[in-house]
Design a protein around this nucleic acid. Structure first.
Lengths: 199, 199
DNA sequence: ACTACTTGCAACATCGATGTTGCACGTTCT
DNA sequence: AGAACGTGCAACATCGATGTTGCAAGTAGT
């Protein structure tokens, strides 16, 4: 959890409250991004004033949420070794890892990089890693020559986003979804022999 | 324009004001969905009170915007003859038509079907047409046998959404984008000969 | 057990957005 | 030209959300 929002160390019960608030915020805000602090507090099972005691402002709460998710996002990509593992393996691993995070932290991850420099750096770093991975995939012949890497990346992100909507807490599901995403990204849905199919 | 928001016929200048407000609302809200009526009024070049005179509430304004966009969306799909034209032709036509609408009415089209029964029907109708088209594409061998049509539709929507972000008012661009979308949907970005490529 | 921390509750302050009204001035339509 | 309509402006009313504070009661850590 982010320690920037709290100057002093927290007592155990307060620590639990903070977690409860962040988890409730994710749940409530993913259903309705304009939800009030009151609704978040209620979902967390605490009084509204308590939320304000733990987070200076609504913005601070959302920022903490974003920072938390961003760190997990970064870890998910980095642990797939996108710069060293074979492109296809890394692509699959990264996909599965990111899906695991994105399911359950959809709201926090949908936030675009805020002013927090650490968060912005993490986002940029992920973007770079993704770009390098796609470049390696291109060089290795996994991607068709001439592929627009920027477009490829955006399609990839979009596919992950769509796949994450099929949320289920089943662990096996993540592997199935990752397979679906990578398969769709690389092969599309057309018939090879068809008119517009691969030449 | 929607006549439901106005009981009596409008004078010519008022008609122009309504259009200006709707266009400004689209522009402003697509940049910031939480924008205030004040900002919309300013962008439309009118006083805030005028906006409230033309639209009972913020909700009414957004609804009118949604209704307007939905009608164009429906027309865009229907005019591609998705039930009679060859699947590939219809797919391309529908894509290009929808892109034309979506570029410039991105906010209004991103709204999920509201309570208005007419709008809900139009959305459902588009969904049906899309599904039937995909089914025909599957039967015609354009889509790979075994393709999950629900997943295919969602990927298709997502691709259109992404393509629409490359907004430019160039008319030729729409054809290029439509080609890109259909091509990506059917062939993906992988190399045919590669490991995970088409078998 | 004692201290320090944390929480709920009630009350209050503030702020921004929404929506309304009256009036004066301009515009459209006939 | 004259009636009906539309708009800008200023002022007001309301409302919900945010954020703050004091206090009493409960809980964690020693």
């Amino acid at each position: 959890m982010d320690r920037k929002s709290q100057q002093r160390p927290l007592r155990a019960d307060a620590e639990r409250t903070v977690r409860a608030i962040l988890e409730a915020a994710e749940r409530v805000l993913s259903a309705n991004p304009a939800a009030t602090m009151e609704q978040i507090a209620e979902a967390a099972g605490v009084a509204r004033t308590t939320v304000h005691r733990r987070f200076t402002s609504r913005e601070a709460l959302v920022d903490a949420l974003t920072a938390w998710a961003t760190r997990q996002f970064h870890e998910a990509v980095t642990s797939a070794h996108p710069d060293s593992a074979p492109p296809l393996v890394a692509l699959y691993q990264a996909t599965a890892n990111v899906l695991r995070v994105k399911i359950g932290w959809g709201f926090a991850m949908s936030r675009t990089a805020p002013q927090d420099p650490e968060v912005a750096r993490a986002h940029a770093d992920v973007l770079d890693q993704c770009h390098r991975l796609f470049q390696r995939a291109l060089d290795a012949g996994v991607l068709r020559p001439g592929t627009d890497l920027a477009w490829a990346r955006r399609v990839y992100y979009a596919l992950i986003h769509e796949a994450a909507q099929n949320r289920s807490d089943d662990a096996d599901d993540v592997d199935e979804l990752a397979t679906l995403v990578v398969d769709t990204l690389l092969r599309g849905m057309g018939q090879p022999g068809s008119v517009l199919g691969p030449r």
